[in-house]
Each structure stands twice: as C-alpha cells, then as structure tokens.
Write a protein that binds this DNA or RNA. Structure first.
Length: 467
RNA sequence: GGCGACGUGGCCGAGUGGUGAGGCAAGGGUCUGCAAAACCCUGUACCCGGGUUCGAUUCCCGGCGUCGCCUCCA
C-alpha cells in the first residue's frame, strides 16, 4: 500500500515495523464540547484505514486517545458553571454515541490522559535529564532549539515561526519558541503531584507518552486532522525523539478538514454544525458516505445538498443488497476486488473505491434483471461495503411499533408486533391486488409509507425496508 | 510576511500526456394496475495566459481565485 506520508510529503510504500502487524495511533477527541461534523471525518477516515489493513490480513492495534484534561475543558466548565467532570462526561458521551452511529469500530485501546499522568511525568523527567526541558516556576518547558529536526514534519523553519513570539503573562519561558510540557496548577484546577509541584500535563506530551506506552518505538502510523500537523504533531515528535524514542513514528497520515461556508469548522469560533444533530437529521449512513465520497486528504465543504446527495447514493447502494436476501457466501468477483484494492492501495483512494462499488452494483443489478443469481457481484459488494463500513444496519422497528400495530388494527388484523404485522399487511395487500382492489392495496402501501416503511413490488415478491 | 493545498460538466467528485471514472439531479425509454426499485439512452468538462510536445485538462512558467497552517482546534 502506498501512503502519502506527511513526513517527507511523498507517496511511500507502506512497510510495517513488524511483518503482518500494523500499530496505529490517532489523535482523538478533546472532550471539551459536543462533536461537530468535522470530528466525524477523522473517526471515519481512520476507521477505514484500520478496516482495510484488517481486511488485508494485518493484525492491527489501533489506539485512539481521549484528552480529558486541558485548558479548554477547564474554561468550558467555568463558563457553563458545572464541574470539569460533567463537561468531560457530556462531551465523551456525545462523541461515543456519534462514533457508534457512524459505525466506527471501537479502538483496541482508548487511553485517557488523566490515567496516564505517571507516564507523562516519567517522560518529562527524561527530557529534563537529557537537557531538552527545564522547570520554571512550577511549569516545565520543552527547549525547541535543542531538537535540531524541529519543523521537519510541518516543513517549517524555526526562524520563520511567528508562534511563541508572544509569551503569555505568567509564563517563564527562556525562549518564546518553547512550549509547556507541564503546567503548574492554578487554584481550583485539577492537578497531580509531580517533582515540580502540583500541576497537569501539557497537551502535546499526552500523546507522546500514551502512544509510546502502547505502541513502543517507531510504530507504523500516526493519524489525525490536518490542523494538528503544527504544532501538535511537530511537538509530539520533538518530545518523543528527544526522550530517546527514535524514530517516534514511520508514517504520518492527516485527513483534510471540513469547511462550512468556505471556512474551517472550529470549536473555538462556534462556526460548526453539531455532529449529533447532523446524524439525526441526515441519517448516520449518509453522513458516513458523505465523508467517504471525497479523498481523505482533500478539504470538504459541508452543505445540505451534499448530505441529501449522499443519502440518495446510499439508498442506491442498499437497494442493491436488498434484492438478494440473506447471507452470501461465495467468491467475490475477482476483477472488482482487484480494482477495489488498486484504489485503496493508492493512498486510500476511498472515492475511487466507491466508484468500484457502484460499478459492482450496476453490473449486479443488470445480472439480477437478467434473472441470474449474481452471487459474485453480491459477494464483492459485501467485501467492499464491509471495508468501507457502509453496510445497512438491520431494520429496527422499535420506534414505529405502535404505529405499525395501530395500522394493523385498522385493517382488521390481529395485533401482532413488528415484522409479522408487516408481513400480514403485505399478505392482505396481495390478496387485494389479486382482486384488483387497488384502493385497499394502496391504502396499505401508503399507510406503511407514512410510518417510513417502503413496499416494493418485484417479480420475486414484495420487499420492504425502512425509508 | 513564511509554509502548504486546491480550482474538472447543473451540483459533488476520481483520474489521465492522445476520442470523457463514479454519484446526485435532469430529460427520454423498458418494466409495472399505479408507485417504488432496477436497467437502457442522453452530458464532449477540466480557472486564465504563455511555454514544452505531433498532441495538455494532465508537464513547466506566470497570473487570478479559494482554502488551510504559522495561536487552542479532527
């Protein structure tokens, strides 16, 4: 597989650190507020990376952290007048609900910063011992100029940086470029004991320490949003490698950001579409497909039209699979799998992979129309849809159970629940159709449509699905 | 100011030095009681100006435009 490595900015052939294994770390959420639509993208993109490697047969260890101690969280708690724990719990719950809805597989390890402070302190001590960090008034700063490779990931020259030109009041940096790896506690803030007094870790050290703990030195892939390249990932490299973990990471992958009205979605500006609301409004599958329509490195413009478009595309995708009920166990069409793999091998060309899926669907539909079984096409569909995580969830009827039941009663049927009620209505409608009683037939179909259940008359019988 | 990305048909979005991926939308047709789904047909696109070339949307140079990072941010 060829991966565009941000480190070096070139397409590189992926060589795992250890044969048959992939160790990857992705920067997850800072649980300071509910997720916005942009946050779903990194989750889905790296979920596909993980699924693809697993599909290839790799043993993947996927670590995605949770930053649960941070200035922003403390600020948010203050503003909302609630405890830090409440902010964390609220945001954490929303993030996980969204991951789950978006069919993002749980990571193998999901470390929380607050549970790894000991490892961070240990790393900071190493940095101080090696002359890469210093304590000042209870803070500890990393000496940027002590790490010659600083800037290699983001392609920056230290002397061109504007960052750190100003020093926040109360900071005691020796050099404006230096950044905090440990922050002395202010009154009322959460803190941990350390050799430098009570305090809390800086954001960047969290990832360096947790990634190293779970994945060791020179692990395979580190991912995150493109906005993390500088300074976060640059700093992660500096800290980890200055502490002796060389190389820190072999491949850096960054997903493009989501724009709204031509501007990046950003928590800090409030220029966002809430992810939970987006999922509820457009459906989880449509949101996931929306992310996957565009190459993962490109910026994407969020728009209502795009989500509606994705929804329609998804309907087409799922409609194909519904034509062939039940599991399919056969060899997938080799030509299609080759094309799919070719696309994915090319720096995870997820958009190209989708095109392959649609080709499979079109030809599969043709075969089905011609009366064939089309099993190789359906099998190919299953493989691709699984890697992309776009499989249609089993139709749940819980939310419309009452409506379905009352509809059945209106039609004079016995009050049976769920699918059997629908089956009974389909039978009743077939009977009516047999007598050319179109009024009754349409009453049933329209009644079900009103609660979101779509009936389709096909040569092979009647199918239904959630609309 | 520094670094970087991008500009493809109504919309979205791949890709390629040589008669146009894919999706959505639209029109026509087949099927169907009607509908839905599906299939078939219909689109000659690649920001502008130079250059290289037999030939450029694809390479090079210069514009213009949009966006990101340089401060917390997926």
């Amino acid at each position: 597989m060829r991966i565009f490595n941000t480190l070096g900015r070139t397409l590189q052939t992926f060589e795992p650190r250890e044969a048959g294994k992939v160790a990857m770390y992705v920067c997850g959420a800072t649980v300071q507020s509910r997720p916005h639509v942009g946050h779903g993208r990194y989750a889905v993109v790296f979920d596909v990376v993980r699924r693809y490697f697993e599909w290839l047969g790799y043993d993947v260890t996927y670590v995605r952290n949770i930053t649960d101690v941070d200035d922003k969280i403390i600020d948010a708690a203050g503003e909302m007048g609630v405890s830090i724990q409440e902010v964390v719990d609220m945001a954490d719950t929303a993030f996980h609900w969204a991951y789950d809805q978006l069919n993002v597989l749980p990571p193998d390890i999901e470390p929380r910063a607050t549970e790894h402070v000991a490892e961070m302190i240990e790393m900071i001590e190493r940095l101080i011992d090696r002359g890469h960090a210093y304590e000042a008034n209870g803070d500890v700063y990393f000496i940027v100029r002590s790490f010659p490779d600083y800037g290699s990931l983001s392609g920056r020259n230290i002397d061109d940086l504007r960052s750190g030109e100003r020093i926040e009041p109360g900071e005691h940096k020796r050099d404006p470029l230096d950044f905090a790896v440990w922050k002395a506690a202010k009154p009322g803030e959460p803190s941990w004991e350390s050799p430098w007094g009570p305090g809390r870790p800086g954001w960047h050290i969290e990832c360096s320490a947790m990634a190293h703990k779970y994945l060791g030195v020179g692990f395979d892939i580190h991912g995150g949003g493109h906005d993390l390249v500088f300074p976060h990932h640059e700093n992660e490299i500096a800290q980890a490698e200055a502490a002796g973990h060389v190389p820190f990471v072999n491949y850096w992958m960054h997903n493009g950001l989501l724009n709204l009205s031509g501007e990046k979605m950003s928590k800090s500006t409030g220029h966002v579409i809430d992810l939970v609301e987006g999922i509820e409004k457009y459906t989880p599958g449509a949101v996931r497909l929306f992310y996957l329509r565009t190459h993962y490195r490109k910026p994407v413009e969020f728009s209502e039209e795009a989500l509606i478009d994705a929804r329609a595309s998804l309907d087409r995708i799922w409609a194909f699979r519904r034509r062939v009920p039940g599991p399919v166990e056969d060899i997938p069409l080799a030509a299609a799998m080759d094309s799919f793999r070719e696309a994915m091998e090319d720096d995870l060309d997820n958009a190209g992979a989708l095109a392959v899926l649609f080709d499979v669907i079109r030809e599969g539909n043709r075969r089905l129309d011609a009366g064939e079984q089309a099993v190789p096409w359906v099998a190919a569909y299953e493989e691709i849809i699984t890697v992309l995580g776009l499989a249609e969830p089993a139709a749940a009827l819980d939310d419309v159970a009452d409506q379905v039941a009352s509809l059945a009663t209106d039609l004079g049927l016995k009050p049976v629940g769920g699918e059997s009620a629908i089956a009974a209505m389909i039978d009743l409608r077939a009977e009516a159709r047999g007598k050319k009683d179109w009024a009754t037939a349409d009453r049933i179909r329209d009644g079900l449509a009103a609660v979101g259940i779509v009936l389709e008359d096909t040569p092979d019988g009647v199918r239904w699905h959630r609309g």
